[in-house]
Simulated assay, not measured.
Amino acid sequence: MASRVYGKFFRISQWIVRKIYPAYNVLIHEQIKDPVVYVSHHQNLFNPFIIYLWFPKDLRTWILHVFLDRKACFRQYVDYTFTKRMGMNRTIAKICAYPLSFFIAHLLKSGKGIPVYRGSKKIFNTFRLTVEALKRGESVVIYPTVDYTDTSNETKDMHEGYLFIEKYYFRETAQHVRFVPLYVSKNKRLIISGEPVTFHDDEDFSIGQKRIGEHMRNQLHELAKKCGDLE
């Protein structure tokens, strides 16, 4: 079972931030054994930040590919994040994005992020890298929230394309992927998981995809209620 995945730069950065950021406890269901695919709400970067920072094991995170390439990361910040989302002047955006793009790309590559290519045939590379990681015993975490800018505790619409991991993994191993809901509670300062769920033997993929997709949303909702984050 793989335990150490992250590179030195990521580990140093993680150690520094842990010194100044409030700690989160972690409760993982007793049935969970690596490798698994954790599924979590994005919550406008909050959940990826907390899970990267405080999860006790190294995880391979699905990350939009532009943030793993310095030049593409710079363009993303200048053309969208700083200008369109934050309303920043383009010249100021370039000044801010230049050093930040070096840091973010280096950090996430050191964190062994798996690049996600939206709307491209390169998405097959995402699945290939994910299956290779799972076969090495490395667990993966995915944030498939449709509106990733939503900051609420409620998990709403989620993309279900990530569940195609099952097809590729089963083809190579004849085993089912274990998908696990993973919730982050600001209220409790807690990272908590639900039970693992898998596709059934001989289950039609589209039926299983819908079943597990709904299960993930429902379980994340229940975990939020359990933590007192929802009425």
Rank of each mutant, 00 (worst) to 15 (best):
A2K: 13
K8T: 07
F10P: 15
R11S: 12
R11I: 00
W15D: 10
A23R: 14
N25P: 01
V26Y: 09
V26G: 11
V36D: 11
L45V: 12
N47S: 08
P48Q: 10
W54V: 04
F55V: 08
L59Y: 02
I63H: 12
H65C: 08
F67K: 02
R70A: 09
A72T: 06
F74A: 01
R75M: 02
Q76C: 14
Y80W: 08
Y80L: 02
T81G: 07
R85M: 15
M86V: 07
M86Y: 03
G87E: 02
M88S: 09
C96H: 10
A97D: 13
Y98C: 12
G113T: 02
G113A: 09
K121P: 09
K122S: 11
F127L: 14
R128F: 06
A133Q: 10
L134R: 00
K135D: 14
V140P: 03
I142M: 09
I142D: 05
T145Y: 03
T151P: 12
S152V: 08
S152C: 01
M158Q: 11
E160V: 01
G161N: 11
Y162K: 08
Y168D: 15
Y169N: 06
T173P: 00
A174V: 09
H176I: 08
H176L: 04
F179G: 05
N187G: 05
L190K: 05
I191S: 04
S193T: 02
P196A: 04
P196E: 13
D204G: 07
F205G: 01
G208P: 12
R211T: 07
I212W: 09
E214W: 03
N218D: 15
E222S: 10
E222R: 07
A224M: 07
L230N: 01
